[in-house]
């Protein structure tokens, strides 16, 4: 029984080192395609980029033709239970999205492909996507974010 108790304590310590200590050290060394950013600054840069490139407004959301990966990056901002902008993309082209939030934690789900990501305020991540079929690709928030959680939808319009 004594040996078993020692093993139990060692197990708890191993779990603590593996999950907590290693996890804390992970926060210092960010993975590729993730960087720290000031939420207000990200919002300012994203909104400026959206204002400069928008071609239309649909249901209150600015419409921006996305820039292919070889030409540059696109900004997707999550704030106040909205995703901005509404992107127009071409089927089969590759796009890089710079994603962050300016207020709180959100989720980003691509409905048709079933992919889920977290959008963390203070961190900017780059996601590379390539639409496979034409039509509307719904996106929505899948992390509880407050009273407007069920209103937080967006769309990527994919053209042939």
């Amino acid at each position: 029984m004594r040996t078993a108790l020692i093993c139990l304590v060692m197990s708890c310590l191993a779990a603590f080192c593996s999950y907590t200590l290693w996890g804390l050290s992970e926060l210092k060394t960010l993975p590729k395609d993730v960087s720290r950013v000031d939420p207000a600054e990200f919002r300012r840069v994203a909104m400026e980029w959206i204002e400069k490139n928008k071609t239309d407004i649909v249901n209150g959301a600015p419409v921006v033709p996305a820039v292919p990966a070889e030409e540059g990056d696109n900004y997707l901002l999550a704030h106040s239970w909205r995703f901005v902008p509404l992107f127009k993309m071409k089927k089969g082209r590759v796009y890089r999205l710079r994603i962050s939030s300016s207020d709180m934690l959100y989720g980003l789900s691509f409905y048709k492909d079933g992919l889920n990501f977290k959008i963390i305020p203070g961190y900017e991540q780059i996601i590379t996507i390539s639409p496979r079929e034409a039509g509307g690709m719904p996106i929505f928030c899948n992390e509880y974010c407050g009273l407007g959680h069920h209103l937080m939808t967006g769309r990527i319009v994919v053209e042939d």
Partner: peptide, 9 residues
């Protein structure tokens, strides 16, 4: 599905 933690972790 969080972006920060590495693949090994």
């Amino acid at each position: 599905s969080d972006p920060l933690f590495g693949d090994s972790w």
